[in-house]
Amino acid sequence: MIERDELLDLLERSGASFECEYHERVLNMEESGTLKLSLAGARCKNLLLQDKQGALYLVVTTAHKSLDLSAVARTLNSKRLSFASADRLFDLLGVAPGSLSPLSLVNDQAHHVQLVIDEDLADEGVFLFHPLDSTATIALSRQDFEDFLHSIGHLPSWQAIEARPAA
Rank of each mutant, 00 (worst) to 15 (best):
G54L: 03
E19R: 14
Q53A: 15
A40D: 14
F18M: 05
Y22K: 15
A16C: 14
E19I: 07
M29H: 02
G15P: 09
A55R: 14
S17L: 13
E21H: 06
S32G: 15
V60T: 09
Q50N: 13
V60L: 01
L10F: 15
V59L: 07
C44Q: 04
G41N: 05
V59W: 01
R13F: 08
S14F: 06
Q53C: 10
A42Y: 03
E12R: 14
E12T: 11
S32I: 09
C20W: 07
L27A: 13
G41W: 03
V60K: 01
A55S: 15
C20P: 13
L49S: 00
A16P: 12
S32P: 06
E30M: 11
E24W: 08
E19N: 12
L11G: 07
V26G: 02
L35D: 06
M29L: 15
Y22D: 14
C20H: 12
Y57S: 02
C20I: 15
Q53P: 05
G54S: 04
D51I: 05
E24P: 09
R25F: 11
R25M: 08
D51Q: 03
R43K: 12
S17P: 06
S14I: 02
L47K: 02
S17R: 15
Q53I: 08
L39Y: 00
G15W: 10
G54K: 02
A55C: 12
L10C: 08
L56E: 02
C20F: 08
V60I: 09
Y57M: 01
L58Y: 06
S38D: 09
N46A: 06
L56M: 04
L10M: 09
E30L: 14
R13G: 09
Q50A: 15
N28Q: 02
N46I: 09
R13N: 15
G15A: 07
G41L: 02
S38E: 13
L27K: 13
T34H: 11
V26W: 07
A55G: 11
K45W: 04
E31V: 01
A42C: 07
E30Q: 14
Q50H: 15
E30C: 07
F18H: 06
L39P: 00
T34I: 00
L48W: 06
S14E: 13
G54D: 04
Y22C: 11
L49M: 00
E31W: 07
K52T: 13
S17N: 13
